[in-house]
């Protein structure tokens, strides 16, 4: 470090001398480089003033005493700046540390909440889930039952940032502890509601749509806890309809009961589940209406489910200049036999 200072000191003196004589641009450009080097090596403002004082006294040994005093005065004045500068440096380091820790937490969360898209005979499944910031407050999960049934959860935690994202782990572990298959969507939501109500901050809540697909009956059983409604595509009629569901968000009222609905799925029909990151997309100041979301989905409906969700995501990412405002999750099931 001192070596840097000595080297820079020599250069600084030369540059100063040259500039005083010629006032040319080149020495200004050079001193800028020296200055950047100081920043890189965390030199404080008073060290730089001191450097200037030394260089001056070497170049002009007979400087007026008044002037020398004034420079020392300036040196004192810079000390407070120096302290502030140091503090800033420490904060920067601290911030870097935090960022690294959050990145570790985010990747841990990804591992904890990870779910694999299952292979279910006769179903084509596509899913995309992208966080707006480092940690994802959206969650989706697949559970493949022994009877070849498929459980699908899609959830959105309200309340942003890290605490919100962390509460998703709680949901995941509660769900894992339920006995497989025996749980209907309404029972799962009723249980989760109690868990969330007891454990989560009052201004935080979770919306969830839980569905169970039974291939032998071609039936989708589902319940919703205040989740953004999904869509059902009827291939025969070529129509999209909102999937009807009513139910209170998780974590508000401890004794909530959920209604359960069923939906018959025929060949080429689709079930589209999403979070409000999709419907709350904005094009500049304009909001996207859900019809527009459907239009975009229709546009890619000829593709396999995974390509479809990827293309739809890309479309909205472009629309918002690649700056997601909210976590974005889109899940599509298509019955192919």
């Amino acid at each position: 470090m001192d070596e840097v200072m000595n080297l820079s000191a020599a250069t600084y003196k030369d540059l100063l001398e040259h500039y005083i004589k010629t006032q040319d641009e080149k020495s200004l450009y050079e001193v800028e480089k020296v200055s950047k080097n100081f920043i890189k090596n965390s030199k404080t403002p008073e060290e730089i003033v001191n450097l200037h004082i030394q260089a001056l006294s070497e170049l002009y040994p007979n400087l007026k005493e008044d002037f020398q005093h004034s420079m020392n005065f300036l040196l004192e004045a810079m000390i407070a700046y120096g302290l502030a500068h140091q503090e800033y440096q420490q904060l920067r380091e601290k911030q870097y540390e935090l960022k690294t820790e959050i990145a570790v937490a985010a990747s841990m969360q990804e591992t904890l909440l990870g779910t694999t898209k299952p292979d279910i005979e006769g179903l084509d499944i596509g899913v995309v889930s992208v966080p707006a910031h480092q940690m994802n407050g959206d969650y989706h999960h697949f559970v493949k039952g022994k009877d070849n049934s498929l459980g699908i959860a899609i959830a959105d935690v309200i309340g942003k940032g890290i605490p919100a994202a962390l509460s998703m782990s709680m949901i995941k572990y509660s769900m894992d502890s339920y006995p497989e298959e025996s749980m209907s969507p309404r029972a799962i939501l009723k249980n989760l509601n109690r868990v969330v109500e007891r454990n989560v901050d009052p201004s935080m809540f979770i919306t969830m749509f839980y569905a169970q697909y039974i291939p032998s009956e071609s039936l989708l059983h589902y319940s919703s806890a205040g989740h953004e409604p999904g869509f059902y595509y009827n291939a025969e009629k070529n129509t999209f309809t909102e999937i009807e569901s009513k139910g209170l968000v998780l974590g508000v009222s401890p004794d909530t009961d959920y209604q359960q609905y069923k939906l018959k799925i025929n060949k080429d029909d689709m079930v589209i589940l999403l979070t409000d990151g999709v419907t709350e997309c904005r094009d500049g100041e304009r909001f996207i209406e859900s019809e527009e979301v459907l239009d975009v989905i229709k546009q890619y409906a000829h593709l396999p489910a995974q390509e479809m969700v990827d293309q739809v995501y890309k479309h909205f990412e472009r629309l918002q200049d690649f700056q997601l405002r909210d976590d974005f999750t889109l899940l599509i099931l298509r019955k192919i036999v």
């Binding site: 959105d156 309200i158 309340g159 009052p202 201004s203 809540f205 508000v252 409000d276 909210d326």
Partner: peptide, 17 residues
Amino acid sequence: NYMDSTGLGIFISALKS
């Protein structure tokens, strides 16, 4: 003219309170 889910959170905690 616009409210997002964070706003809902506020109204829920106000309701509880």
